[in-house]
């Protein structure tokens, strides 16, 4: 018997006001997704793998300087520029709003990375090697990529799948293990949190700057922001004007028309840096 498929549309909200640039998400992602160790050489050659990275920008003139942080990960665009250019369909869009990379198909033309405005696709220039003592920490749920292929943030699809299997198929309440009635078997935000089904960066964020849930989940933290962001897109598509001073919601490089499934919330500046 095939279980009824539940429709999801995953989305992430990045609250820049809360981000402290602590890089906990970067480390968590590195550990969860079997990302090769970024050595000094990798950084110097600009070939480091950071499925999520914290970009640091300085604002103002010395001595009135402020550091600003923005975590950038794969935006899982609805109109992803990386998808149409792949000659072998190694990257495609699944029906849960995620941009998925199929490692086996990838031949490494690197066109997707060239066409990614956020530069969040990473190429395996070398065969990844782990020291002997770290071999056992590899996550068995995640493919270890070989050289010559692209990789990128997957929204920790392995965790979402585990959640879907446990909650929606088996009907198990994550904490108590009780059976859920068949009609209610839909992975919601509370269950994701209790069962560790959130992406590892979201789980690791100490300030809750990263929020992840189903975009239609009433109980989740992202619905209101996505509703607002979608409203903005609709207003713009109909030629309307969005007053950006009254909203914190925006999408990165909205003008390219990629419609990302990651929404950013602007930083609130109580004491803005004086412009020199």
């Amino acid at each position: 018997m095939v279980a009824q498929r539940v429709d999801h549309k995953w989305g992430m909200v990045v609250d820049l006001d809360r981000c402290t640039g602590c890089q906990a998400c970067v480390v968590a992602c590195q550990a969860e997704n079997n990302i090769p160790i970024n050595t000094k050489d990798y950084f110097q050659q600009r070939r480091a793998y950071e499925w999520i990275r914290i970009e640091r920008y300085w604002e103002g003139q010395f001595p009135n300087v402020k550091a600003k942080f923005i975590p950038i990960l794969c935006q899982h665009c609805e109109n992803a520029p990386c998808e149409p250019v792949c000659p072998v369909f190694a990257t495609y869009h699944n029906d849960e709003g995620m941009n998925v990379q199929i490692y086996n198909r990838c031949v490494g033309t690197r066109y997707c990375s060239v066409n990614c405005p956020y530069t969040v696709r990473f190429f395996n220039y070398w065969e990844p090697v782990w020291p002997e003592r770290l071999r056992n920490q590899l996550n068995p749920d995640v493919t270890v990529r070989s050289r010559g292929i692209m990789e990128k943030c997957s929204f920790c699809v392995q965790r979402l799948r585990r959640g879907e299997v446990n909650v929606e198929r088996r009907g198990l309440e994550p904490l108590t293990g009780e059976r859920i009635p068949t009609a209610d078997r839909k992975l919601n935000y509370r269950q994701m949190k209790e069962g560790n089904y959130l992406p590892s960066c979201v789980q690791a964020c100490p300030t809750n700057a990263l929020q992840f849930a189903d975009q239609h989940d009433e109980t989740g933290p992202v619905k209101e922001h996505f509703d607002e962001a979608n409203e903005q897109i609709e207003t713009r598509e109909h030629g309307g004007h969005v007053d950006e001073s009254h909203t914190r919601v925006y999408r990165l490089f909205e003008e390219i028309g990629t419609k990302p499934n990651v929404v950013y919330l602007k930083k609130v500046e109580p004491f803005p840096v004086e412009k020199a």
């Binding site: 050659q45 600009r46 070939r47 480091a48 690197r110 060239v114 190429f123 220039y125």
Partner: peptide, 15 residues
């Protein structure tokens, strides 16, 4: 044999 690492390519400049 060794991989594309022997070239000078990097993340923004993939070609």
């Amino acid at each position: 044999n060794k991989g594309m690492g022997v070239t000078g390519l990097n993340r923004p400049v993939m070609w």
